[in-house]
């Protein structure tokens, strides 16, 4: 009998605990309702892509030497390099170059391995099209420079979380000159160069 009562008591206690936990969860959810939305209202606000953003690939026709390294390092041999051997110049002459961004995974291997740096990543990511064949960019399309989000008067650019000042979590209503937390890459570079120069100077004096 006592055992049974103890069981009932334990069960009741567990039920109350469960109710308490649900109440705690509800209060957390309720608290979230007062917080500011973290979403970016896309067509009107856009996040500024970071420096190493891997967007649509840019291609400079004149730099290309048709070596086809990009094709070899591509996981699926995607770039199409159409060249012809020019006997007069004894050089490969590039005729067409194209990448199909409907298939590209933006891994950046081609950019990494290109010997003449004629390939580069841009920060363009709006690649929607009505027909997937429209995503097959030829060398003209690949050669277009992307528009910077900050230049678009219709768009409010938003900084990414890592580019906000210390302690700030919302990219809205930042003061104009607000700096990101930590040092900027060029400052690091300057510092390094200064250090290098100093060490060289000490070496020379020795």
């Amino acid at each position: 009998m006592l055992n049974f009562l103890k069981q009932v008591g334990d069960y009741a206690k567990e039920s109350f605990q469960a109710a308490k936990y649900i109440g705690q969860g509800l209060s957390v959810t309720f608290d979230h309702m007062q917080r500011r939305p973290v979403t970016v209202q896309y067509p009107y606000e856009k996040v500024i892509p970071s420096e190493r953003y891997r967007g649509r690939i840019h291609f400079e026709f004149d730099k290309c030497i048709s070596c086809e390294v990009c094709v070899r390092v591509c996981p699926i041999n995607l770039p199409v390099v159409d060249w012809e051997f020019n006997k007069a110049q004894k050089k490969k002459q590039l005729k067409h170059y194209s990448i199909d961004f409907g298939v590209c995974i933006f891994c950046g291997n081609c950019v990494e391995y290109c010997p003449t740096n004629c390939l580069s990543m841009t920060e363009e990511y709006e690649l929607s099209a009505y027909d997937r064949h429209e995503l097959n960019y030829d060398n003209v399309a690949l050669g277009r420079l992307p528009a910077n989000i900050k230049d678009d008067p219709m768009v409010t650019p938003m900084r990414e979380f890592a580019y906000l000042p210390k302690g700030v979590i919302s990219p809205h209503d930042l003061p104009a000159g607000a700096r990101r937390a930590g040092r900027r890459p060029e400052e690091l570079l300057e510092e390094l160069e200064a250090e290098l120069a100093a060490s060289e100077a000490t070496a020379e004096t020795k």
Binding site: T29, H32, M33, R35, R36, P37, V38, T39, Q41
Partner: peptide, 10 residues
Amino acid sequence: KISAAAQQRI
């Protein structure tokens, strides 16, 4: 609206 608010959306 409430779902959005609970998930910090609009």
